[in-house]
Design a protein around this nucleic acid. Sequence first.
DNA 1: CTGAAAGCGCTTACAG
DNA 2: CTGAAAGCGCTTACAG
Lengths: 334, 334
Amino acid sequence: MATLKDVARLASVDVSTVSRALNGTSYVHPDTKARIMKAVEELSYRPNVLAQGLRKGKRHTIAIIVPTLHLTIFDDLAQEIEAAARARGYSSLLCHTMDDPKNERECLRRLRSGFVDGMIIAATGKNTHLLRDIHADGIAMIQIVRRQDHTISSVVGDYERGSYETVNYLYRKGCRAIGLINGPMLKAPYKARYNGYRRAAADLGLEEICTREDQRDGVTNSFEYGYSCTEELLDLHPDLDAIMAAVDIQGMAALKALRDRGISVPEQMRVVSLTGYSIGNYLETTMTSQELPSRQMAEKAVEMLIEEIEAKPDKKPGIQNLIFSSSLMERESG
Amino acid sequence: MATLKDVARLASVDVSTVSRALNGTSYVHPDTKARIMKAVEELSYRPNVLAQGLRKGKRHTIAIIVPTLHLTIFDDLAQEIEAAARARGYSSLLCHTMDDPKNERECLRRLRSGFVDGMIIAATGKNTHLLRDIHADGIAMIQIVRRQDHTISSVVGDYERGSYETVNYLYRKGCRAIGLINGPMLKAPYKARYNGYRRAAADLGLEEICTREDQRDGVTNSFEYGYSCTEELLDLHPDLDAIMAAVDIQGMAALKALRDRGISVPEQMRVVSLTGYSIGNYLETTMTSQELPSRQMAEKAVEMLIEEIEAKPDKKPGIQNLIFSSSLMERESG
DNA sequence: CTGAAAGCGCTTACAG
DNA sequence: CTGAAAGCGCTTACAG
């Protein structure tokens, strides 16, 4: 690979002049510039981003840290974030933690050593201290979907409201025994979904029907979990007429479990996912779901992050918390 | 952030000694080492990877370039590659091209300027020249799933055989009118799938039933495409008793189209996907599919890539082409 | 308008 | 066993 020095030599100027010509940092005589450009062309020179980064203290790279990509809203989100970042001249580095705090810690440790200028994270809920340290180190940070620390800006969905409205929607459809498949309450989104559900149930005078497993802290974001929860609900509540699933994969599991038991959807049982992403459309029984505007959320998160990265050290932007509402997409299942 | 210099000052030694102590490059007196470690601890020093990279000419970062992540084997693959790379101390940078050669070109251009030590790519088929240039520049490269250039090592699936065997499997199940939903032939995998299909049809004396749209070069890797192809097949071939779909999303679309027409699966129509990934298990009608061992493929690709990256310049490893066979996972749809 | 010099944070021969 | 020096490839005051 050709370096600045090679170009300088070929164009018979100093490296600093080449640098200025390339970056437009200051005026360079047209003739000189032409010679330089010719040399650049000839050597097919391209600047070494490492050296630039070292010199300028910026990497133009961000990290996206998500629990998983499989069949979750994080799939959409990661794709949108990457696109939005690229549109602004930033590369992104993707990491999945599998929702395991240990993986997350390891990943954060690597990242903090100058790998990236900032990160967008949907955290596991356990490494709050480390997140703050990294943020304090001067690495920009935005929480997405999961808000676990109030000292760091966030872009999240209004799960409480989505959940509340879904219960009301099902009630209007005639449902009176609505079960909730959720996840560990220590993660904010699950907690919020439960709160919305509870408030609606209270308002409407409905019984709260939750699976016992919800309290468990494990991989609730899975087909198997959704399937077993559905079975539990059906066994314990013969009168059940609707199932609300926290995430799509649980909803898919519910659809499968119901079919396996010969229960028809939506006639005998309505199924709604509280965190839909694009897959809802592609199922045999298309799934009604609350959908978050993932593109807008991604764009906002990237915008906020880059703003923080590029702000002068003396006037960093304050903490911002953006909340997006989901919209109910009516499909066959509910 | 503390730097080497800070540590050196605090430990009253030279930066070079700190460097050696930290990297174990040469023996350092235990007392000195202890002092250094204490300083490191105190300042919570972590080396700047940028500077290390610049100095050593290595980034310990690879790029993963795939067409898309949504509902395709690339989802599994990207996740496995990232994990395999991380296990070997490499970070990965993920890019999607949306199968658009322009996006691909732009992405490759950014990447080549010192961003990464190597890349694993499932290319669009159009930028062969650029790929070779980058490879010639000394950036390690492995093609995955799609082999488009014979001068670059590859790890691919044996689509020809998978396709051939699927026809035979369906034949044994009693199917005699087997339709194929495929994609643009200029991409090697589609071509191979067609070849296997054709060979089997010839061997068994079956009529070839392909959709006209297969010749089209567009987004064939989509639900909409699969749906319309299924409709076309049904309209033109009333006797059809099986559908082979090149990829899962097409298979999902077929399942949906069949249900919409009231055709039962697998009784009246069998459906098999030729490139299954984990989703086949999670559908209402679970989908029979040929599945590639994505973890092994990812591991092999990473291994080969890192070998190439870390090889001495004088003895780079030769070109390797690994072919993995898929296995048929029998599920409800076929 | 352009050159010479310093420096970003590290590593690695070279001495001793 | 450790220090002093050079250099990875760039950018940016500082002169002129």
